[in-house]
Nucleic acid binder design. Structure first.
Lengths: 376, 376
DNA sequence: CAATTTTCTTAAAACGTTTTAATCATAGTG
DNA sequence: CACTATGATTAAAACGTTTTAAGAAAATTG
């Protein structure tokens, strides 16, 4: 029978023992030279209780007498005990960790979204395991998913743009063997929760603004059409123009690769084909910058001869020359929402329920500046 | 004695059993309705060996007969077994994980660096645990460090700018209770390994370039001087000017907050004070953009009246008007180097050795474009 | 005051791996 | 053939937690 009180110790010492120097002053103890990280057993010994009781104090899941709680707390502090989350996760079958698979972190959108994800995750008590793809379309995705499940993440956020057929990577059966998962910017399909910006609405907003400003021949500068976002923005552009009875033909479309350099070149070629263009909707701010450059070089005044609208509202866009009218996405909010939704799914699953996967669409907003002539 | 061969099973079934449907076709087995994740014991049962042997096959750390290896491999595949890295980490006392503490991920530099970190980490087989600070200077850093050590990361990368006295957060005694750690962009001090861009050299490069172009009154547009990087760049600017016998007085310094907006305002004020300024070194590209804007608005021609050089070489900088001369850092390389160095420290520590902490300084390079008149 | 409930504690069994030391074949020696 | 190497395999003990079921002490009751 374990003896108690007076600091009696019944738990066996294992491995290197703790050398405690008890200073002459009462209640002041200095620990030195621990040869191994302190465990819950060490704390239990010092507090004269069982490991189970220490656990109860720490997790607060079950009642414990005030006096022993204090004794344990003091032992924890004196030893500088830090629980081993690996062990805890192992027995709990939950790591309090979310996996984030992302692409293009060096760009504005994804990094902003990641910040939102991290914040909300931290708020809900999750840690983040980060995996980056080097290309959106050709990578061994199985390896990263295997890695994440091997680490027993509670959920996965898929923040990779839908490009080409990469959405086929994770089919429904695959999804079945994975923890709860949420997709950012990916086309809706059964069994998967989604949080995304309404790209189509954003493009409509931009195009309608140009139409309202009296423009009649609105070209579009797109990213690669293998991207789902691009196809959505194209659709929005087409919608707005057709609704206004204006031309929305392929002849007005120039495809680039998201960069300012390519944007400049693509617009240059487009203007040769269609010198009558009096407005451009660029699918991101960088290509819009390239477009501004192109116009400047070609002697076309912005916005007098050509009005330009971008997409993203990067911080620099307000300082382009002229300042860029653009579409703002709520990127951090997107990330927060994704985490919240994922959290819901996780909790539901832990309680044995299954939620019907939600689908959130965030509405972008138009920021009017000089490049569209709209700022007056 | 455990019976072997013929698929004899000696390992007890625990929890929900595996229901295997053996199809009429030989060697084709379909598994259904597993009620629990498959463990190494399940694999062992199916292969008719002990868990220890399965472990030996999987880790390859000890020899195992070819025939049993194949039997185990097949069992692994048939069951779709995925090792539980939490359990493995627990017994190995190493999680194959690096903690990354970062700030300002929404900005160009940090996100680029993170990409470099992630790549090299993936290459070396580490997973990344990401923690973001919301501000560089006032946060409970203890909590994030505790979290990382609780998850038993093998090492920590500190990618937070040194601002104010935040370097005091992690003093040498604190460092002693942490896993190996490497600091990005932090002033050298004993006991800590460092990888950073040579900011001073970069600033010298930029300033010297302006001097060589015949400028005589070179102002500087800085970020907050509480940042270590800013103080370094200021020093480089001063070095170059003093070496050339030119003025480097406080009257030529304008402080802003890294944004284009503040850069524009700060330069405007500076030009009122010192209308004789004929060149500006801006401590990042965004403030340089603000500076361009300011000059444009004030009717000062760039580079004719004022030459401007930035810092960072953001992709957009080549498309500013005029195209921006700037200093390029090798940000991704910085991240890779940090991981490599940290990896060295980790390996050394695991072998009981201690490395003297290294200090890498990366040399930035000057990218000459139109804004300094240097492009011809 | 005996009987019963309530409140705290605890021993022991998980969780899913790896590792150590021991066992057991098998093959190689003299 | 007895003996020793050699190599493959295994039982059992870690790793550091939480949880379950049971037990002990204290508090409440009749």
């Amino acid at each position: 029978m374990p003896c108690q009180g007076e600091g009696g110790i019944t738990w066996r010492h294992r491995r290197g023992s703790i050398t405690a120097i008890i200073s002459p002053l009462p209640n002041v103890k200095v620990l030195m030279e621990r040869s191994h990280p302190v465990t819950i057993v060490d704390v239990a010994e010092r507090a004269g209780v069982s490991p189970g009781t220490v656990s109860n104090v720490l997790t607060g899941k079950r009642p414990v007498a005030e006096s022993t709680r204090q004794r344990v707390q003091r032992a924890v502090e004196e030893l500088g005990y830090q629980p081993n989350l690996l062990a805890r996760s192992l027995v709990n079958r939950s790591s309090n960790t979310l996996g984030v698979v992302a692409y293009g972190l060096e760009y504005y959108g994804p990094s902003r979204t990641l910040v939102g994800i991290e914040r909300q995750a931290a708020e809900l008590g999750y840690s983040l395991l980060l995996d980056l793809l080097h290309r959106p379309d050709d990578q061994d995705v199985d390896a990263v998913l295997a890695e994440l499940t091997a680490r027993r993440v509670d959920g996965i956020i898929w923040a990779v743009h839908e490009v080409g057929d990469n959405h086929a990577w994770i089919d429904e059966t695959r999804l079945h063997s994975l923890p709860p998962m949420i997709f950012l910017t990916m086309e809706q399909r059964p069994g998967a929760a989604i949080v995304a910006t309404d790209n189509r609405a954003g493009a409509r907003l931009a195009t309608q603004h140009l139409i309202d400003a009296g423009r009649r021949t609105v070209g579009i500068l797109t990213g690669p059409t293998s991207w789902w976002e691009v196809r959505e923005r194209l659709a929005g552009w087409r919608n707005a123009l057709e609704a206004a009875g204006l031309e929305a033909s392929p002849a007005l479309i120039a495809e680039a690769d998201w960069t300012a350099a390519a944007g400049e070149a693509a617009l240059k070629a487009l203007l040769v084909r269609r010198p009558d263009i009096d407005a451009i909707f660029a699918c991101n701010d960088q290509m819009a910058l390239g477009a501004l450059h192109c116009c400047l070089a070609a002697g076309r005044r912005v916005p007098h001869d050509i009005a330009i609208v971008g997409f993203d509202n990067t911080p620099e866009s307000a300082f382009f020359w002229p300042a860029l009218t653009t579409v703002r996405q709520h990127l951090a909010e997107l990330g927060r929402l994704a985490v919240n939704e994922l959290h819901r799914q996780i909790e539901a699953q832990q309680q044995g329920a299954t939620l019907t996967p939600a689908r959130h669409l965030l509405h972008p907003e138009l920021i009017v500046r000089a490049s569209s002539g709209g700022a007056g």
